[in-house]
Measured scan of single mutants.
Amino acid sequence: MASDGVVVEIGKVTGSVGTTVEIPVYFRGVPSKGIANCDFVFRYDPNVLEIIGIDPGDIIVDPNPTKSFDTAIYPDRKIIVFLFAEDSGTGAYAITKDGVFAKIRATVKSSAPGYITFDEVGGFADNDLVEQKVSFIDGGVNVGNATPTKGATPTNTATPTK
């Protein structure tokens, strides 16, 4: 695992066909100046998982989280898009600690492993708008004895992609 920078880890949970599971997305290594904004994309298989919603985690402190935390689910493109932009203008609602960034709610549709993997990152910046190093650890849903650990090695991303 990367020793510096922010680590975004997609949790690994267990479920069975027809059940709804909650998959946490963790941030670790949050910089001392916090995270003022970030955007990134995960990939998944809508034939295996139906993403039914995404909720902000406990490290989102904006009293009205829909102003700073936004997501979009595109089953036709097989992606989930995340956007966080601190909304106070003063840094008061920045992410300042490690913990759960988001909770992905999904219904298991198939007995195949439900991988959720890193696809791309736009950027991560602290309260001074300084770009942060970030790496990703894939996860998803274990169905029966299947284990979604494909790509469990962190993917280092030093520069934003478009």
Rank of each mutant, 00 (worst) to 15 (best):
D126I: 00
P56H: 08
T107P: 12
D4P: 07
A112F: 03
K97A: 11
N145R: 11
T159K: 13
D70K: 01
P31S: 11
V17Q: 09
I59Y: 07
G15E: 13
G140R: 13
T161W: 14
F69W: 15
K150C: 12
D39N: 00
T14H: 10
F124R: 00
V21N: 15
T147Y: 13
K33T: 03
G122V: 00
G122R: 00
P24R: 05
A125G: 03
Y26M: 15
T20S: 09
Y93P: 01
I80Q: 09
F136G: 13
I60Q: 12
R43G: 11
D98E: 10
N127R: 03
A85D: 00
P160C: 09
K133M: 02
E9G: 11
P154V: 12
T90A: 09
S88G: 15
V41L: 02
K33H: 15
D119Y: 14
G5H: 05
N145K: 14
G53T: 10
P113V: 07
N156W: 10
P56C: 05
I51N: 09
K133D: 03
T20G: 06
T159M: 10
F101W: 15
A112G: 04
S68W: 08
T20C: 11
K133R: 11
S16D: 04
I73M: 02
R77G: 06
E131Q: 10
G34Q: 05
S16Y: 06
G15F: 05
K97N: 05
K97H: 10
D98H: 08
V81P: 02
F101Y: 03
T161E: 15
V130T: 07
V6R: 08
T153A: 10
P63L: 15
A72H: 00
I73D: 03
N145H: 13
V61S: 12
S111N: 13
F118A: 07
D138C: 05
D98R: 14
D126M: 01
L129C: 02
A36R: 00
K67E: 04
Y44H: 05
N142G: 08
T96Y: 10
I116F: 04
T66F: 11
A106K: 05
N142E: 09
T96A: 11
G123P: 00
I23N: 03
N37P: 00
F118K: 12
C38N: 14
P31N: 05
A36V: 06
F101I: 10
T149I: 07
V8N: 15
L129S: 02
T96I: 10
P148L: 04
S135L: 11
K150Q: 13
T66N: 06
P65G: 09
D119V: 04
T14G: 06
V134L: 03
G34E: 04
I35F: 03
P154I: 06
T14C: 14
T161Q: 12
P31I: 15
P113K: 12
I35E: 13
P46C: 08
D98S: 09
R43Q: 07
A85F: 15
I52T: 10
I95F: 13
P160Q: 11
K109C: 08
F27D: 11
R105L: 13
L129F: 15
T66D: 04
I23A: 09
K97R: 09
E22V: 04
N37A: 14
I60F: 14
F84V: 01
C38A: 08
F69P: 12
S111R: 10
Q132D: 01
G18R: 07
T19I: 06
I104D: 01
S110I: 05
D45H: 07
G5K: 11
P65Q: 09
A72V: 01
D119E: 03
Q132G: 02
T107W: 06
I52K: 04
A152T: 11
N37Q: 00
A92P: 03
G123C: 01
D62C: 15
I116Y: 06
E22D: 07
D128Q: 06
T20P: 12
T117Q: 04
N47P: 08
I79A: 01
V61A: 11
G53V: 05
R28V: 06
V108W: 05
T117K: 10
V13R: 09
P46E: 04
P63F: 14
F40S: 02
A125N: 01
A102W: 12
T90Y: 15
E131I: 01
G34P: 02
Q132A: 10
I79N: 01
N64K: 13
R77F: 11
F82Q: 07
E50W: 03
V100P: 06
K33I: 15
I104M: 15
I52H: 07
N142Y: 12
Y44L: 03
A92I: 13
G5I: 15
R43A: 09
A36G: 13
F118N: 10
V21P: 07
G151H: 07
N142R: 14
T149G: 12
Y115S: 07
D119M: 07
F101S: 06
G34H: 04
T20Q: 03
V61M: 03
G140Q: 14
A146W: 04
T149V: 11
V8G: 07
E131L: 01
V130G: 08
G15C: 04
V25Q: 03
G53E: 12
F136M: 07
I79M: 12
G122Q: 00
G18P: 12
D126W: 00
T153L: 11
G144M: 10
A85H: 06
K67V: 09
T96S: 10
I60G: 04
T149W: 13
P75E: 04
V41I: 03
D39A: 01
S32H: 11
F124W: 01
S111E: 10
V30D: 03
G139H: 12
N64C: 10
T107K: 09
N142P: 12
V17N: 15
S135D: 07
V143A: 12
T117S: 10
F124V: 02
T107S: 10
K103E: 06
E120H: 01
Y115A: 12
A158W: 13
V13L: 04
G34I: 03
A146F: 05
G11K: 05
D58K: 02
E9N: 07
G18W: 03
D45S: 09
T90H: 08
P31E: 04
V7S: 10
N47H: 07
D119A: 12
S32F: 05
Y74R: 00
F124S: 00
A146D: 11
V48C: 05
E131F: 01
F69E: 02
T66M: 05
I60S: 10
A92W: 15
G123A: 10
D138T: 09
G114N: 06
I137R: 12
V143S: 11
A158D: 08
G11F: 05
G123V: 02
T157D: 11
I80V: 04
V130P: 00
S135C: 08
K109A: 09
T155N: 09
F82G: 01
V30K: 08
F118P: 04
P75R: 02
V61G: 06
G139L: 02
